[in-house]
Amino acid sequence: MRQLLRVALDLLLEATRRRWVLGLFGSITLVLTALGLSLELDVVDGALAGSKLFGVLLSDDVVSAHRALSGVSQAVAYLAFYGGAVFLVVACSDFAPELLSPGRIEHLLSLPVARWQLLFGTYLGVLGLVSAGILYGAVGLTALLGVKTGVWSPGLLLGSTVGLLGFAALYAVMLCSAFFVRSASVSGGAGAAMLGLGVVASYRESLTGLLEPGLVRTLVSWALVPVPRLGGLATMSARIAAEQAIDGAVASRLAAGCGLFSVAALALAAWRFERMDF
């Protein structure tokens, strides 16, 4: 376990010295700054009297700032979930292929680190890095909206943890794919495909209903069963961000399923890794 954490920490330390981290945090800062400068919220006595984005009037209804913020948080959570997922899939696509690059993997494998520790450590390292990015973004947004409206809500922060869970499944697939084809574009493609599949899986019953009854429909329906319900997680994240009630049982099953799927993908990667020659 100690070695696993050492690998994760090593990856984190190395990443912090790369331009990649500057890019990640720079992009988040840029989005926050742009929002901060362009979003005008006219708050009068705790009520939102109007809101403008880039000078365009979004709404001039007078509503409670808390209620208005709930809608904003929900929209931001959806945007952050899907937009963030796409951004991170692209940004993290070369970590695993880089790990397996000739000259590096032989050296790492000559060190007293088991292959599975290297795999899980890399996974945890990337997730650690992404967590820091997500936390930075969520704290920044919470502060931005808090300063502008006077309403300080932890919803976005809590909702972002669900976003991290969704990315955990995506990255597990990306990492796994790298052990079959060592390519950043294949890794990124696998992540993007997984994101799409995860949304499709969230509406499995309805969407497979569109197929003609028969073998194909049955196969597709069963193939989607273990796929994490990323669409469902996005909704969960948005509801938490908006401080709306969620079904606890459903939420825990979605989260547990997503976690189990991630570990399954990593176990598959470990199977492949253990058999590989470099």
């Binding site: 273990p226 994490p228 319900r229 469902g232 189990l260 799927f261 570990v263």
Partner: peptide, 15 residues
């Protein structure tokens, strides 16, 4: 784990 993930999530789908 994959089977377990599927079993867990089957109960969490919209009807």
């Amino acid at each position: 784990l994959l089977a377990l993930a599927g079993w867990v999530m089957l109960g969490a789908e919209p009807p």
